[in-house]
Design a protein around this nucleic acid. Structure first.
Lengths: 192, 192
DNA sequence: CATTTCTCTTGATATTTATCAAGAATTTTC
DNA sequence: GAAAATTCTTGATAAATATCAAGAGAAATG
C-alpha cells in the first residue's frame, strides 16, 4: 500500500531513497470497511490520514441528530481533524468510510519528525495547508454568494467524480440543504 | 509603526535583534483612509498585509452588485488574497478600509526570503496558516448547521469588538443574510 | 449647522428552502 | 434471489429569509 503514497510524494517532492524508507517506517495502514469510523466525536485526533483507497467523509452532528458533511476525501486526499490534532482537544467531528477504504496514518509526532528531518516534506505539508485554506475560503465565498442550485452546479464542476460515489443525502448535507431540496434541484437542472 | 509588528513578533517567536532589522528593512507601510482600497478585484495580490491600526474587510461582488464579506481584519490581523498571492492570478476580491488604517506590507518574495533566513519566522507563518484553516473550517461548519440567529450569536461571541466597529450591513453580508434580516434578528434577541 | 448621504429599521409581500408524510427505487443482507 | 434496510423522489404545507418600499436616524460634508 505504501506505493500509493510513494507515487504521491514523487509527484510533489524530490527526496532521497533513505527518506522514503524513513517515511515508510512511520506509516501505519488501516483498513476500514464501509461505515467504520476513523475518528469519533469526543476523541482526540492523533494521526493525519492519507487515503490510499476508498472514500471517507468528515461530518458533525447537530442537536437534532442531523449530520453536516464538512469534507469528503478520496484517493490521494488527506483527512484528519487538524484542530483536534493541533491542540490535542476532543474532536467535534466524525470521520467514517463511505466505501471500504485503506488509510495511511502518520502520527502527529512523526509528522513533526519527518518535517524536521526532510525539509522538502515540511514544504509539501505547508503547500497542502495553503491549498486547503484557499479551497476552504473559496467554499465560504460560494456559500455566501450562491443559491443552492449554483452551489450544486459548482460542486458538480469541482468534484465530478465524487458525485457518483457519494450518496445524495451526503452531498445535500455538504451543500447545506436537505435531500428533498437537492432532489428538486436535480430535477430542475435535468429539465433544462 | 514597526513597533506594532515587533510586539506581535516578540509575542510569537524569539529571534535575534539582527533579524528584526532584516524584517523591518523589507516592510512597507501604507496609510489608508476610510473607503480606500488595498486590493481591487482583477488585480494580482503581491503583498501580505499586517494591520497596525484600523479596520479592513475583504469581499467579493456578485452579478447583482451585492457585496459578500468573506473576512474582517483589525489590529494584529493579517489580510491578503492568499490565492492570488500564491498563484499570481487576478484576485476576485476587494480589500478596503472600513476605518482609517495603517497596514504593514511585505511582498511575496520577501516573505519567502524571511522564511528562508529566519526559521522561526517560517514556523510562525505556518502556525498562522494552520490557525486560519481551523477558523475557516469552523466557519463552514457553523454555516452548515446553524440558523441565521445562531450564526449571529456566534459572531457576537467570537468577535465582540468587531460588532461595534463594523456597519451592520457588512456583518449581515459576512453572515450570509440581508441587512433587513439581521435587523429583525437583533430585535428578536433584544426582546428576550 | 444645514444638507446630503449613508445606515438602520419596519411593514407587506414574494421566494426559497425545510418539514412531514408516503411511496418508489435501489442496495444490502442473509 | 427474496426480504429488509436504505436511499431517493414527490406532494402538501410550514417556516425562514429575501425583496421591495418607505421613512427614521446617524454620520459625513461643505
Amino acid at each position: 500500500m505504501f506505493e500509493f503514497f510513494r507515487k504521491y510524494l514523487e509527484d510533489k517532492i524530490s527526496i532521497a531513497e533513505a527518506d522514503y524508507q524513513l517515511i515508510e517506517s512511520v506509516c501505519i495502514f488501516k483498513k476500514l470497511r464501509k461505515h467504520q469510523f476513523l475518528l469519533n466525536e469526543g476523541d482526540v485526533c492523533t494521526h493525519s490520514g492519507f487515503v490510499c483507497k476508498g472514500f471517507l467523509r468528515k461530518y458533525s452532528v447537530d442537536d437534532k441528530g442531523i449530520e453536516h458533511t464538512v469534507y469528503f476525501a478520496t484517493e490521494n486526499w488527506w483527512i484528519s481533524d487538524r484542530q483536534s490534532l493541533m491542540n490535542c482537544t476532543p474532536s467535534s467531528y466524525n470521520i467514517d468510510a463511505i466505501e471500504d477504504a485503506v488509510v495511511l496514518l502518520i502520527s502527529k509526532s512523526n509528522i513533526e519528525m519527518l518535517s524536521e528531518k526532510i525539509p522538502a516534506f515540511k514544504d509539501m505539508v505547508n503547500l497542502i495547508l495553503q491549498r486547503s485554506l484557499n479551497a476552504t475560503q473559496e467554499r465560504i465565498n460560494y456559500a455566501l454568494r450562491s443559491t443552492a442550485e449554483e452551489r450544486y452546479s459548482q460542486f458538480l464542476k469541482s468534484f465530478p467524480s465524487l458525485v457518483h460515489r457519494a450518496p445524495r443525502h451526503m452531498v445535500a448535507s455538504y451543500l447545506g440543504i436537505t435531500p428533498e431540496t437537492l432532489s428538486r434541484i436535480r430535477k430542475q437542472i435535468s429539465s433544462k
